[in-house]
Amino acid sequence: MKLKRTFGLKSTLPPYSIILLLTVTVLILAMVSLGLGAIYISPLEILQNFLGNGMQSQTFILHNYRIPRILIAVIVGAGLATAGAILQGVLRNPLASPDVIGVTKGAGLAAVIVIVLFPQSPIIILPLSAFIGAAVMAAILMIFVYKKGAQPNTIALVGIALGAICQAGIEYFMVKFPDDVNTTLLWLTGSLWGRGWDQVFILLPCLVLVPVLIALTSKMDVLSLGDDIATGLGERSKLLRYILLSVSVILIGVCVAAVGSIGFIGLIAPHIARRVVGSKFKVLLPASALFGSIFLLVADSLGRGLFPPIEIPAGIITAVIGVPYFLYLLRRERKIT
């Protein structure tokens, strides 16, 4: 109820048509994004390529760079946004997100350690360590959440503090090993540059979580009413929270592993979604996911298309768009105590 009052600008359209609209938007954006980049490919040429008689150099670019990048943008955007929506529901804090709870910073620290201390390690180790970093961070946070019986706000604060500790560690390594700073910085900003089918295949297993989430949505609504009511209604709320938190951590871990720590998608997308379709998870989750996809698609397309051949990491663009919106939300949000 609280959420609904705060973000009460519900659209008059029925939710499912909005979701259809969003899906169409994602598809259109993906098509537009296919043409953008250092080498412009017109819609007609794209069509010819799909029919199998385009220019070979264009086909190569489309198949090797643009299509995988667009898929990654769609999946990572959706993944981070879904994770954010779940976190906001489970922690009952409209400002919770992967960045806020320090999980992305944990992944960042682990990645920096690998880049700096084990520069010869095979390239697959990097996403793996990022994932482990995120998981460890989440585990520490969960211990706080459940040992202390903490308030949702305390969780957010503890998350920010853990993030600060990781940041201190990251700075230590960057100062101590200045020669690796380039790779490290790029990774910490989050970029889809140089990502390809390998990352798509890292991300694909995430889709397994889709049916799990669909099965859990009705229970999540009950959960967001509060522990007391949820327990009263017979939901085993504690276990459910664990499961949901784990799902979101897996999503975050895999996404960060694939593209680095891209910020603010997990926070902004669920908010916009909630304003448009309301806070029932059955519509909120798909809508968040779609908004997340749109957000990252736009950010990456801008990054590629603005100053070719120079690429701007998508993480910079999501921050520049996302932070002002976040601050605006914070200003409006009078309820958090």
Partner: peptide
């Protein structure tokens, strides 16, 4: 509140460091 301050501070910090990048 504490949490709002911390969040706003973090966000502004994030924003400025992105611009620096």
């Amino acid at each position: 509140t504490q949490v709002k301050l911390a969040l706003a501070g973090m966000a502004v910090h994030f924003f400025l460091s992105s611009l620096t990048q």
